[in-house]
Design a protein around this nucleic acid. Structure first.
Length: 911
RNA sequence: GCGGGCGUAGCCGAACCGGCAUAGGCGCCGGACUUAGGAUCCGGUGGGUCUCAGACCCGCUGUGGGUUCGAAUCCCACCGCCCGCACCA
């Protein structure tokens, strides 16, 4: 028994050979050996952040799936680009640096080396010559370059596209455009600059941010917990305005929605993106203030209900709050409206202080209990001149619509609740059905109490009132979005420096000499404080003065000290893989067109957690680059696939402490660890739950091919499913069985001969080729593996496997379990490895049996099975079925009908 | 509340178009090999009945309806679960 399957030696041998021979190098047009007649396929994984913990077996499932597809497409002859790199800027390395003083660059390099080792151990067929890291200056040089394109562009609404800002300036100077209604020639230099800077796709603006003094940085909304504390470290987070870099993603809102029609993505991801962008069509209505030129502009999706507007609400941050706060309470002010204050100013003041103290999360947690206060002022309903009291309440958000609403309690549940609480009038303007029992009525119905709208249905009433508003100058149809511009600056060290110089007078200049390297600092600690009023201080303010200050034309400029968020590098990395060493361009034009035109990346595999942010940001950048002529496809990722998570059971003892999952035993329907009963739970695999499976141990025991097979065989690639160590033995047996079927254990010689397969085996082989081929394209690797199991089982006990069968089998399995297949292929005389050996073809005639089983049903129940020729005629099938004795026993009298579907089925209807 | 998706055996799952429900794997049962085996190999595995190497019958895809000769598949209602968003006017 010398010649058994030794996975370790085989893996070492073939992984070394792939590396040596650059087996998976992707050839570009013009490269030696490049075949322009073949189609191109760009297969991309979402590149990882190289964390210090390395990979566990749950991580690579998507990589294995995309690798199988890549290997399959190579065998199909396609030119395959399948690269890997690292999204290596980010907080953990910086945090680690704060704790240990080790420079993030060192940590990052170390972690990347470990990741590369682990990924290579899985046998993934990346073109490692194209490896990139977002922290590499040769890479982030181009991230900075793209930022400068954003800075140097504006969004032309008429063209619905970004254009270089020089073209805007030329048009202004030529008098073809004006600056928001003001003639260009009427503006001084500073005003002109302010206007231009306000038009850029990358611009500075004062916005509300999540400020965490303890961490010394602003945080993205996703980094703040529901109770208004920092996700990392659980520190308090405050809302405050701050001047920050913003990217004008909102200009692309409609294109980001519309172009989802161009891509083959999961419907759920498209839905999430649409939802995030949150387009809603409605109207703006301006409510005049009596005796003033001021108007309150509101956004509503239900302009048809305007006759039912019984009060107004401004968000606490609304710019008109101060102006509309009256000196004294009007006579008919109710007690519930005042908050118990002596005058409107103090009531509003007190309310604003409270509202500001609350985080957005806290605000949302108070959905049940509405709060608010009367300003003492009224506006006028333009449709009927009724006075309407104006309130300030934080259930209206400044960030959506206009930050002010007309409240229509009759048709809005939130307004209803507020109205009940504050004793405000409720007027229904849509007639609910007679059996309606709820509060606010949101459904269809004829308009009532609405003057000239009465009797119209909702859609007609909307159209009618919008026409009226436009005619009378009180507003009109508008569109509102939930999407906001992208807050792009961070006060962190470990990110791309923003390449801008600030001069006196607010002048900004781009840094053209890229890359702008991160300066060295002694201390990576962010400026931390427990004072909520502390000013945010970027880490780069600790850079030496030589870096911070630059003299340009005799004037002292200061460098921008904020860095970019982690999303920046991942917004365009798929482009750099195409041309990773180009030092004159982001990506060469010819190769970019070859790999990206017309649908972009052909298969993009990654986790659904990136459904919105990464994928939306990347699409935005891509569209800007497209508008400016740097890329040739409208969308970056033509086909997206989300792999499912590998889940695992975890176990906790009586104290709630996790115990090692691999040491837990099941007995009598309960789970036991070390003599005591433990409780089972289910969730993501992870170190803290002690339910992770170490890949190194797995490889040592069963091998990489077993891991790849197992993870693909568990179930559909897109589903989340539980890791069950017990089940692994199935694929291990499969591999040993395969080896035994082809290799003589005594001599090590091949059990393969040049005989033809018998007809049954030939049919099975060709059916398997057909099925596996279809599964490869559809990424249904679980069923592909099942088919290969069947074929393998059919070879058991043969004295010799027909060569034709053995070769095809190895080729079919090769993308999934490449190591054992390379070894067997070589032993069978194949030369040069099998990465580019043509995929087996099936013969449709051979995939069909001559005789098949036809089922005979009586009233839909199977009563007999008959062996019939595949090409049986309808008449013969009917006759054979009616001839069946078993059928006769279930028939009384003449059948009323006979359905014949040769050669599969005959259904006899007795009734 | 809104949006997306799912429910098949003891477990993971298969079944592109409506046509033999449960392929493949695990587990379990039996056998072989063996000093032994939780290793490996071979066979069986929805339930029931009988005259038990076989035959016959029945049931079955979360629940209840509908369409159809025929439904896991299509339609309606309900129940349960997962994911995302959520005071978005």
């Amino acid at each position: 028994m010398e010649h058994v399957y030794d996975h370790q030696e085989i893996e070492r041998k073939w992984q070394a050979r792939w590396a040596e021979q650059h087996t998976f190098r992707a050839l570009d047009p013009g490269d030696e050996g490049f075949d322009p007649s073949q189609p191109k396929v760009y297969v991309l994984d979402m590149f990882p952040y190289p964390s210090g913990e390395g990979l566990h077996v749950g991580h690579p499932i998507g990589y294995i799936g995309s690798d199988i597809f890549s290997r399959y497409m190579r065998m199909r002859g396609a030119n395959v680009l399948h690269p890997m790199g690292f999204d290596s800027f980010g907080l953990p390395a910086e945090q680690y640096a704060v704790e240990t003083g080790v420079h993030p660059r060192i940590t990052t390099e170390r972690n990347i080396a470990n990741y590369v080792r682990q990924l290579k151990a899985i046998g993934l067929s990346y073109d490692w010559d194209r490896e990139i890291a977002t922290t590499d200056p040769d890479y982030y040089r181009w991230t900075q370059w793209i930022f400068l394109r954003l800075f140097g562009s504006w969004f032309d609404r008429e063209a619905d596209a970004a254009r270089p800002i020089d073209e805007l300036m030329a048009a202004l100077e030529a008098g073809e455009r004006d600056a928001d209604g003001v003639s260009w020639s009427a503006l001084d230099e500073k005003a002109r600059r302010r206007f231009i800077d306000g038009q850029r796709l990358a611009y500075l603006d004062e916005v509300m941010v999540n400020w965490c003094p303890a961490l010394g940085t602003v945080l993205a909304n996703e980094e703040v917990t529901r109770d208004g504390r920092s996700d990392r470290g659980d520190h308090p987070v405050y809302r405050r305005p701050l001047r920050q870099w913003m990217l004008r993603i909102t200009a692309y809102a409609d294109r980001l929605i519309d172009d989802l029609a161009l891509v083959d993505w999961p419907e759920s991801v498209k839905a999430m993106q649409r939802n995030w962008i949150g387009r809603s069509d409605g109207a703006r209505i301006d409510f005049p203030i009596a005796g003033s030129s001021t108007r309150i502009d509101v956004f509503t999706t239900r302009p048809d209900t305007v006759f039912g507007a019984t009060y107004m609400v401004l968000a606490p941050e609304h710019h008109l709050v101060a102006e509309l706060t009256a000196e004294q309470w009007p006579e008919d002010t109710r007690e519930a409206w005042t908050g118990g204050a002596a005058d409107p100013a103090s009531a509003v003041e007190r309310y604003l202080v409270e509202a500001a103290r609350k985080s957005e999360r806290e605000r949302q947690a108070e959905v049940k209990q509405k709060t608010g206060v009367f300003t003492g002022s009224f506006c006028v309903n333009p449709v009927n001149d009724e006075p309407i009291p104006i309130f300030v309440a934080d259930y209206v958000l400044m960030g959506y619509g206009t930050g002010a609403i007309m409240a229509v309690p009759g048709q809005d549940q939130r307004d209803w609740e507020f109205a009940e609480q504050f004793d405000l009038a409720i007027i229904r303007t849509v007639q609910p059905p007679s059996d309606f029992e709820g509060d606010a009525y949101l459904g269809e119905g004829p308009a009532i109490n609405s003057d000239f709208l009465d009797g119209l249905d909702v859609e007609q009433a909307k159209a009618s009132i919008i026409e009226w508003l436009e005619a009378e100058g009180f507003g009109g149809a508008i569109v509102s979005y939930k999407l906001r511009d992208w807050l792009f600056s961070r006060q962190r060290y470990w990110g791309e420096p923003i390449p801008i110089l600030h001069g006196p007078d607010g002048e900004m200049r781009p840094v053209d000499d890229l890359p702008l390297l991160l300066p060295e600092v002694d201390d990576f600690r962010p400026a931390s404080s427990d004072d909520e009023n502390a000013e945010p201080v970027p880490s780069l303010s600790k850079a030496p003065d030589e870096w911070r200050f630059v003299e340009v034309d005799g004037v002292r400029f200061e460098r921008e000290l904020n860095t970019m968020p982690q999303w920046a590098g991942s917004c365009w990395y798929y482009l750099r893989f195409i041309d990773p060493r180009n030092d004159v361009r982001l990506v060469g034009e010819g190769v970019e067109r070859y790999w990206m035109d017309p649908r972009g990346v052909d298969l993009y595999v990654g986790g659904v957690e990136h459904a919105v942010l990464h994928l939306l940001y990347a699409r935005f950048w891509h569209k800007v680059l497209y508008d400016l002529g740097h890329v040739s496809s409208a969308e970056p990722f033509g086909r997206l696939f989300n792999q499912g998570l590998i889940m695992a059971h975890a176990y906790r003892d009586g104290r709630g402490v996790y115990v090692p999952a691999d040491k837990v035993e099941e007995r009598d329907g309960a789970f036991w660890y070390d003599g005591q009963q433990v409780e089972q739970s289910y969730g993501r695999m992870g170190k803290s739950k002690k339910n992770g499976v170490n890949p190194d141990e797995f490889f040592a025991k069963h091998g990489v091919d077993a891991l790849r097979l197992y993870e693909m065989f568990m179930g559909p690639l897109g589903d989340s499913k539980p890791w069950t160590t017990r089940d692994v033995v199935g694929v291990v047996r499969f591999l040993h069985r395969l080896w035994r079927n082809l290799v003589d254990p005594d001599s090590g010689g091949l059990l393969v001969s040049d005989v033809s397969p018998d007809p049954d085996l030939a049919v099975l082989l060709h059916r398997t080729i057909k099925a596996v081929t279809a599964d490869m394209v559809g990424l249904r690797f679980n069923t592909a593996v099942a088919r290969l199991f069947e074929l393998n089982n059919a070879l058991v006990g043969l004295d010799a496997v027909p060569r034709e069968v053995a070769e095809a089998f190895i080729l079919l399995l090769a993308p999934i379990a490449p190591h054992i297949c390379e070894e067997l292929w070589e032993r069978m005389g194949g030369e040069g490895g099998l990465a580019h050996v043509p995929w087996p073809e099936y013969d449709e005639d051979l995939a069909v049996e001559e005789m098949v089983v036809m089922i005979v049903q009586v009233d839909g129940k199977v009563r007999d099975r008959l062996e019939v020729p595949v090409d049986i005629s309808e008449e013969d099938a009917r006759a054979a079925a009616l001839d069946s004795e078993k059928v006769a026993g279930h028939l009384e009298g003449e059948p009323s009908r006979v359905i014949v579907r040769p050669p599969n089925l005959v259904n006899i209807v007795s009734r």
